[in-house]
Amino acid sequence: MSNSVTRPRVAVTLGDPAGVGGELVAKLLSDPDTTARADVLLISDEAELAVAGQDAGAPIDYVTGPADGKPLLHHTCATRPGVFERKVATREGGRWALENLEIALGLAKAGDVDAILFAPLNKTSLHLAGMTEQDELRWFEDYLEETGFTSELNVLPGLWTARVTSHVSIARVDEGITRENVDAAGRLLHRVLHESGIAAPRIGVCALNPHAGENGSFGRHELDIIGPAVEGLKADGLDVAGPFPSDTIFLRREEFDGILTMYHDQGQIAMKLLGFDGGVTVAGGLRIPICTPAHGTAFDVVGKGVANTGSIRNAFDLAVRIAERRTIAQPS
């Protein structure tokens, strides 16, 4: 496979075999622009790729030995039960998805790939398969032995969001809203926006409480935690503003390249209303860009050939773009 700076190496997994991941990947790879931009390494097997091609009505044109311009099948050593049950969360499907992701992460740790794209996963399947972490980001973090702040980032064309807290009970959000976490999440959002190609990112910060706390009447997080964190980021030269009431900040979204939210649904509801079919999730704060569509496994349309490819195309584009910029930025 090519090692040129302008042609990153992207490992691709097909996600949960019960869902639409295979169809999405097959459709993505049927576009010549995809394989023109990166060397694609498929973490899969012939049986999974055949089903994916059938679902998409577009067989995947892959090779099993090095050949520029075509996806290369990296034979999986994941556990295959035979035929996967579809349209339902299963232990077997979750195990297959996790084991294939382990292979991709191992390639990343070894420096053999520059980015990872994974098709949608099902958290129930992952937990049935033995994943103990709350979500795949924490699992990535543990596997890669990352020690810094990490956060899921969600992306639409022209707007990013990051979260101070993510997949936790709403009752536990308060304990995660600390000045240190707001500061770390703001810096992470700024860094990844810059890596995506935005020279001077503009970031807006959400309040936690109604009306941004109304000067302490509805809570003091804005006065004691979020506001001071914003001022600290500004003092270090970041273009950051807020905290703004969360029920109006997205009406001002054209003023910002990214919005920092305090908890999951504070940003996700807005982002999915603004562009459900094009959204991307980025595992922010890891040593390698890892991107996926922001939607789920879509069991209701499995096998119908109608799965929308907007999100997976955007996810691939973003993974390649970040990988390119990181490669260029590395010292020779």
Rank of each mutant, 00 (worst) to 15 (best):
L188T: 13
L188G: 13
I177C: 08
T161I: 12
T161N: 05
G204D: 05
S166K: 00
R179P: 02
S169E: 07
E195S: 13
V205T: 11
A171C: 08
A200T: 12
H190K: 09
V192Q: 07
R187Y: 04
E175H: 12
E195C: 02
H194D: 00
I170A: 04
G204Q: 07
T178V: 09
R202F: 07
G186K: 00
P201V: 07
S169A: 15
S166G: 11
G204M: 11
H167A: 14
W160Y: 12
A200N: 13
P201Y: 04
D174Y: 03
E195I: 01
S169G: 14
E180D: 12
A184N: 10
L188Q: 14
I203F: 03
I170Q: 06
D183S: 15
A199Q: 13
I170P: 00
N181F: 01
R172D: 11
A207N: 09
S196L: 01
V168L: 15
A171V: 05
H167S: 11
A200F: 10
R163K: 12
T178A: 13
V164W: 02
T165E: 04
I177W: 04
I170T: 05
I198M: 13
V168Y: 09
I203W: 08
N181E: 10
A207R: 14
I177S: 11
A200K: 12
A207K: 13
L188A: 15
I198V: 15
A185L: 14
I203G: 00
H167N: 08
S166T: 09
A184F: 05
A207D: 10
V182S: 14
A185E: 09
E180G: 05
I177D: 04
T178W: 09
A184R: 12
I203P: 09
L193M: 00
D174A: 09
I177T: 07
G204L: 12
V168D: 12
H190D: 15
G197I: 03
S166L: 04
H167F: 04
H167Q: 02
R191K: 08
R163C: 09
I177M: 11
R179H: 06
D183H: 13
I170G: 00
R191C: 02
D183I: 14
D174V: 07
S166R: 01
V205D: 03
T165R: 09
H167V: 08
C206I: 09
V164F: 03
T161P: 05
V173F: 12
S169W: 04
T165C: 08
V205P: 01
G197Q: 08
A200P: 02
R187A: 04
S166H: 04
I170E: 03
L193A: 00
I198N: 04
A171E: 10
L189V: 00
G186I: 05
A162S: 14
L189T: 00
H167D: 11
A171Y: 04
R202I: 06
T178M: 14
S196A: 12
R179I: 08
A184L: 08
D183M: 15
V173E: 15
P201A: 15
E175Y: 03
A207E: 11
G197V: 05
L188F: 10
